[in-house]
Structures are given as C-alpha cells and as structure tokens.
Design a protein around this nucleic acid. Sequence first.
DNA 1: TTGACAGATGAGACCGGTCTCATTATCCCT
DNA 2: AGGGATAATGAGACCGGTCTCATCTGTCAA
Lengths: 356, 356
Amino acid sequence: MSDSPSKPRDATVQDVAREAGVSKATAARVLGGYSVTSPAVRDKVMTAARSLDYRPNEVARSMTTGRSRAIGVVVADVENPYFGLAVRGISDVARAEGFDVILANSGEDVERERDAIRMLLAKRVDGLIVTPASVHDTEHLRAVEASGRPIVLLDRYIPSMSVDTVVADDRAAGAAVARRLTEAGHRRIGYVSATACDDPVYRGAHQLHLSTVRDRIEGFLEAAAQAGGGGCERYVRLGVNRLGGGPKIVADLMALPDRPTALIASDNVVALELFKALRALGIAIPRDLSLIAFHDADWTSVTTPSITVVAQPCYELGSESAAALVRRARGDTTAGRRIILQTRLIERESVISPPR
Amino acid sequence: MSDSPSKPRDATVQDVAREAGVSKATAARVLGGYSVTSPAVRDKVMTAARSLDYRPNEVARSMTTGRSRAIGVVVADVENPYFGLAVRGISDVARAEGFDVILANSGEDVERERDAIRMLLAKRVDGLIVTPASVHDTEHLRAVEASGRPIVLLDRYIPSMSVDTVVADDRAAGAAVARRLTEAGHRRIGYVSATACDDPVYRGAHQLHLSTVRDRIEGFLEAAAQAGGGGCERYVRLGVNRLGGGPKIVADLMALPDRPTALIASDNVVALELFKALRALGIAIPRDLSLIAFHDADWTSVTTPSITVVAQPCYELGSESAAALVRRARGDTTAGRRIILQTRLIERESVISPPR
DNA sequence: TTGACAGATGAGACCGGTCTCATTATCCCT
DNA sequence: AGGGATAATGAGACCGGTCTCATCTGTCAA
C-alpha cells in the first residue's frame, strides 16, 4: 500500500560497485578492507559509498564468514547492580578487542536461560558468557561446549564442566566472614540466602544449585565449626524471595530457643530484607545482633549502622571472563581454566561482640 | 591443525532434506513452518531434523527475510537499577510477543550510543528502543527514523522528533516535589543532578541535554516561584559525578549566605552522594535540611531517616515502549505518539519544616 | 625480446535459508 | 471419461556479502 515514501532500500556492495564503475568483487575488497586494491580504485569506491550512504550488512557478512564479531552474554539478573558492574567489565574489554556485546537476561530461570542461549547461538555469536542459573540443569551448556563454540562461565562454576570459569573465592569469603564473627565472640551464626529452594530448612549442600551459595555456606560452616561454632546448620535459611518472606524467616530465627547472635546475608537484596525485618521487630543492629552482607552495594555504607560487607570483584569478574572468551574466539584451545578472584572484607559498624 | 575433534558442522536444511529423502524446498517448508506440507512428509522431516540435531540458522533466515524478530535496546546505564527495571519491562513484553531482545549500553555517552545503534542496525534488528544520551546530538537517531526502521524513545524525549516516546511526567514530578517542600515552609530549595555539564552553575535550561533533568528542574523552579520560593536557580547544581564531587558541591551550597533548607536529588545515586556528604559535614536530615530524591530505590526506605522519594514507573516505561515498538514493527504507520506516565510521591521521614 | 612474477581486477561460486514458479498427483463434478 | 480446481512437491533464483580462481597488465632480469 503506502510503500512509496520509505523505500530507499539500503545500498549494497553491488550498488556501490556500479556507481564506482568497478566490479562487485573489487568494491567488496575496498569496503571489506581485505585483499589488495589500488589507491585510485579505493578512492572511487569510497566516494561512491559515501554518496550512496552505504552501510555494510552484518547479517550477510556473518553468514558467509560464520563469525559475527559479537559475544553473547546471559546474565542471571540485569536488575542487580552486581551483574550490572560485571556487564560493564565485559563490555569494556569486548569493545577494546573489537567485539560487540549482546546481552540477554535469564532472571535466574533455567528455561529462559535455555531460550537465551538458543537465540544467541542462532544469531551466531562468536562465544558465550553465562552465569548458569543452576549447577544441576546443564545439558544446554554442555551442548554449547560440545559444539565447539567457546563458552565461559561467570560468577558460578559447574564442577563437572571444564570450560573457562571466572569466579570469586566464595569458600574463602564464607570462611573469612565466619572467622570475623567467631573472633568477635559469636557462636550462633545464621546464614540467609535468596536462592530458591523447595525447603527453606537447610539439609545439606546438595540442595543448593548455585556454586556461590554452596561454597559460601560450606566455607562458613566449616570455619565456624573450627572456632567452636558447630551446629550453625540449623540457622541456615534459604529462599528469601524479593516479595517478602524476609519478615517470616527473621521471625522464625529469632523465635528459636538459642537464637543466633549474628546473621550473614548472601547478597545485598537479602541484606535489605533482613535490615527491614529486624527493624520491624525492634531488634537493634549491632547491639542485639551483628550483621555481615555479601556485596559492597553503595548504600550499605549509608545505613545506620553502616553494614560490614564482603566486597566482590564484580568488574574484574566481567573483564576477566571477556578476556578469556576473546582468547578462545581467537583460537586458543588449551584446557579450560578456572580463574578465582579474591574478595575483601570491609569493616563498618554492624558487627560487635554478642550480647551476654 | 587440531581441527579433527570439533568439526561436526551444523546440520542445514539441505542435510535434513537429504536425510528425509525430500527436496530442500520441502524440508525448508516444514522446518520454517510456512506454506503447506503433508503430515507424512512433515513427520519424516521432523524425525530427520531431530536425528541430525538441526537448529535453524537465524543469520541466514534474517538475511533473506530482512527481519530478525529481535529488537535492539540502547540503555544509558545498565548498572543503574532504574534502567534494569525498565529492561525487564521491555523483555517481558518482547518475549510475550515473540521478539528477542539485544541489549547494548551507552554509558550516557553519545559516541557509544552511535556505535551501539550502528551495530544493532547492522544486525538488522526489527526496531530500536533508545534512551538518548543527549537531546542535542541526534542525527544518528533521525537517520534511523528516516530509514523507516521503527524507533522508540525511552525515558527521555527529543522535542523535535515525533517518534513514539514513553516518558514519565517529569515536569509534574518536579512541581509536585517543589509543592511538597514549599507547603512545609521551605523557600530556599536546591536541586542537584548528576548530568554532566561544562559548568556546574545553572544558567538556564538550554545547558541541559536530558529532557528528564530539564523538565524536572523547570517544573520545580516554576512551582517554587509560584509559592514564593523565587530565585532557587542559584541553588541548582549539575555534574555530581559518581566519583565524588558530591562533597564539594554540598560544601559549596552549605557555605552560601542564604543556604538552602531543602535539597532535591535528581536520582538515587545523587541522593546517596548527598546523604554521605551531608553526614560528613554533620548536617542532620531532616532537622537541619530536608531531602527528597527521585527514584524509589529499595534502600531509600532503610536509611536513617528514610528518604521521601518520587516513585517512577520504570517497569511500565519499559513495557509500554516495547509494546509501542512491536506495534510499529507489525506495520503501524500512524503518527508518533508521546506516552506520558505519572509518578507518585512517597512520604517518608526526610522532610520536615525548615529550621528557624 | 621474452618469460617469470607480482599486483590489480573481474567472474562467479558459495553461505543457508526463503520464496516464486512450474510440475505432478489428487479429487470432484458434469 | 474428460477437464478444471486444488494440494503437494521440486527446481532454482535470490538475499548481500566473502573468497577462490582466472585473467590481464606492467616490471624486471636474463
């Protein structure tokens, strides 16, 4: 129908070639910047290209080459600044290396993760960076590995996969937090995570489908036990979802006969939930209860009291994984490596000795 | 070199056709789900496809069709949860409508915005959603509009462009904030924005290259003046960057002979900066100074005092823009519309009457 | 002068889908 | 039984690049 106004079909190599009076092959050589051409021809072609406002069609280009100069990133939660920072790390490195970044969001859902990977592969990205939503549900990840397309795991490792993986030292971080608290005198320490789980009561590491959470809890429990804080398993709570659940879990913990004297929040969203719930119950931090949170979210320094946190190398997590992926995309076929970055405990005001 | 192990080149329509014993055209019909085929053939082809683990090559597909069933999103700052939420709104709608989302980050930088748009167009996305980094530097956006590819502006409008635009009612929001403060008795009200600017002193709306900031400030100044708070222009400060600058700007404002009795923060990052800087100076909120911030970031409810904020319809900003874009991609050619969503003031504890 | 050789260009196949058009098989009706 | 409409399939062009291979020209050494 009304197609007359906006039909100035994009200029193609062929069009440019005609305008410049050379063959399609020659024009392509100039425009694609490959092979050799004479300065005179180069000039003619570039002039023609400009006058026709030629823009290369990446789709056609990547169909023939099989490569797209793009890397796909599947992130667990775009809304979380934690991953936002990692994405910036990825973008910066990718850009510097000449790769575009295509970002997709899984929302911690394996189904959507699968979809996102399918789409990215269909778009023929040169490689994938994924924060796997589950250590258990991984055939789709293995399929990528098997297909020979590079894949890098970000933030969470999968024990049975040997692809490049960039993670924080979560076990050490969990242990460091436990030590900080036991040294302050705490023996009954709780751990609260957002990770969804059928059963909010901790029954063992096998329930956990994220390596980060699993490692942190194991590191914490082990270090706590060593320091005389055995049996903290009973203070581990899972599945604090964003839409509440915090108040109930906090109330439960606080109603225990031997209630914990310190709490560890697995990420900044959980920390916020705990903070609110504790305040609502009239439990003062740190007087009645000490608190340490994972992730140095900017706001944790501004609450009253400010919150002692584990700072994680988010940006580096991203930049290292991008660097690894680029190496692979360029042909590196050495064995997969696991890059483990260190965390850092930032002391603030939310930890003191337990009340007697 | 070591190419022997991972060379099982992906199966193509041709391969499936051969395996199923039909022509390439027929196999394509079945696999592409178009035209008509007999149930028997359909069966044979699907079986063959499964056995060969066929996956369609979207690149080839979109080369012939010219469409990619993907929409490109250029967001100003992935790290900002404000946009994170909007992205979720976009994703949800896009997904429901059968579109993939390709996300790119401009970091509020026009140059990167241009790059991102070039890349997305080269990938032949079916449409673009952009949060323009500047109202002034817009030829690349106009070029998209002129090319006939749908483009929707998100969060910020460009007065001279008539494409679909989804924004919050920033002018009304600015006015509402001003009224809230003047009704509490404030007459000297400051406004602090992160928007970069050559000159941190406000000289007029023309310096501002973001419609959001401009509208908010204009709405604020107008409403303040009406209520007897004229001359607040001198309390407007721009360019609080993330890496400090907050302390200096706050110190400057507080050193003025007639220092402001209330401050408005243009977004939650600025609010955080102000909060820290004020605390460092020993200025108590709300006793010495009232504070209202834009964006209901989750942490604003947990500070002491909690912060009165303007809640913005982030998710809806995203979902509406995606809906608009999908409409366009499906062929709607009616005139561009501007969709204006309302904000809401959430009362908390950071506003009281000014000290005498 | 001639032949080897490098540099520059052209012709055309190819990537993996979609889609048009022609052909064949099937069915229904008079 | 014959003819026209319809359904199902095949053959092959096409999208816009890349890339191989052949051709042509000019230079230089023998």
